[in-house]
Amino acid sequence: MPSDDLVVLRDVRKVYRMGDVEVQALHVRELTIRRGEFVAVLGPSGSGKTTLLNLVGGIDAPTSGQILFDGEDISGFSDRQLTLFRRENVGFVFQFFNLIPTLTAEENVRFAVDLASRDGVPPDRDPKALLAKVGLADRVSHFPKQLSGGEQQRVAVARALAKNPKLILGDEPTGNLDFRTGKLVLSALRDVNRDEGAAVVLVTHNMPLAAIADRVLHIRDGEIASVEINERPVAPEDVTW
């Protein structure tokens, strides 16, 4: 029976070397993200939130320490192993949407489906159904250029879902959106979390957004300063900022 722990970080450090100077961007002594959990990471700019996200998502490697994903240590993975790891396990939602401009909404999602199908069992996901799930059933044939910012970000959420990931990482996914559109995207993420059972880690510097999470990590100066548990997370529709 699989453990309830999806991601475990043990004494993880990320140090950047700039010439002769070493800057410690992050030091996490112990952190566990459970399956299906919605975690918000809060902190000021430069506090290390994105570094944490990058390490958990396998797009950066720690300087030291151990990162276990589903019981497997990914901290020593090669570039090739990290690529496969991301392909099979992680969905990303970026601040600037990062859709492929020459592909339609459906094709952007299908791109991720095809990737996931390449090395293993197909995720059996219908891109159109995924787009419908984020409220874009009537925009499947549109190119990114023809979609609003909120629509583009919802396509990105659908793309993140396409491979049926165990973990979805959102780096300021509402940072480039207006209030109303931002809430639509948060709703989509929350729905995915509840309906699909995917854990979500949402990085933001926007304090009110933390209310929708099960747990809130406060990061300051590269360390987790405090952890807050939301007994009653609020619905994204009810959040104001």
Partner: peptide, 14 residues
């Protein structure tokens, strides 16, 4: 750069 980096991030191999 960003388009290619995005593809790599979501799992496209070199």
């Amino acid at each position: 750069t960003r388009e290619i980096a995005t593809m790599r991030t979501i799992g496209e191999d070199n």
